[in-house]
Computed example of a mutant assay.
Amino acid sequence: MRLLLVENDANLANLLAKGFGETGFTVDLAPNGLTGRHFVEEQTYDLVILDVMLPGLNGWQLLQLIRKRGTTPVLFLTARDAIEDRLRGLELGADDYLLKPFTFDELLVRVRTLLRRGPTGTADTYVIADLDIDVQRQRVSRGGQRISLSDQEFELLQLLASRQGDVISRSLIASQVFNNDSHKIEIAIHRLRSKIDERYQPKLIHTMGTVGYQLAVLAD
């Protein structure tokens, strides 16, 4: 597995590279955003770890460039602890947000979790409560009743199901399902809810503030 670590604290970057190297990862180090952009444009990575405050090109800007190129998992590793910063990171398409100070063990667990999950998931079937999704045959049923979805509705549902329980940011949904057109998301969610949730309990599709959406069974 190949990681890109974009971190301008040389001591921290070297410690993390050593730790990841000892656990079997190959790590490229970028001391600033511009170097990070060069690596992203020239190499393929399984995961990118980003600081926010970077010289040359900040983490927000670099994440946007990464999202234009694909769905590589991105984890923010930063001291920016304001809720507005965390929300901004998720809205721009980050997959996780870990605050400094941190332990290497926690970072390693989060990296491994993201790598197992991947950007979109690879399962052939998903089962959430009484909702069944057959990816191979593109069939959906709830409570034993078949549900007809358009290709785009199915793609949206599959994305939510592949990361069930996680909040999927609007920017990630836009980039993966709607060719970066975020204006279509609310209408598509409304139509999907009318088919998946309207006549059933428990409700499965949840709006998580302005950040994004979640497919999950939530406790009362």
Rank of each mutant, 00 (worst) to 15 (best):
S175H: 13
I173W: 02
S171T: 13
I205W: 04
S175E: 13
H190W: 09
K184W: 00
D166P: 04
A188Q: 11
V177A: 06
I187R: 12
L172V: 03
K184R: 15
E186C: 00
G165D: 13
E186D: 15
E186Q: 09
H190Q: 13
N180Y: 12
S162E: 11
V211H: 03
E186G: 01
D181L: 04
F178E: 04
R191Y: 09
E198Y: 13
N180A: 15
D181V: 06
V177S: 09
A174L: 02
I185A: 05
S162T: 11
M208D: 08
Y200P: 01
V167M: 08
S175W: 05
E186A: 13
V211D: 02
H190S: 10
H206V: 07
H190N: 13
I173C: 08
I205D: 05
F178C: 10
Y200S: 06
G209A: 01
Q164S: 15
S182A: 15
V211P: 00
L159V: 10
Y200W: 12
I168Y: 01
L160Y: 09
K184N: 00
S182F: 02
R170L: 05
R170G: 15
A161Y: 09
H183Q: 11
S171M: 08
S194L: 06
I185M: 08
R199V: 03
I187M: 09
K184I: 00
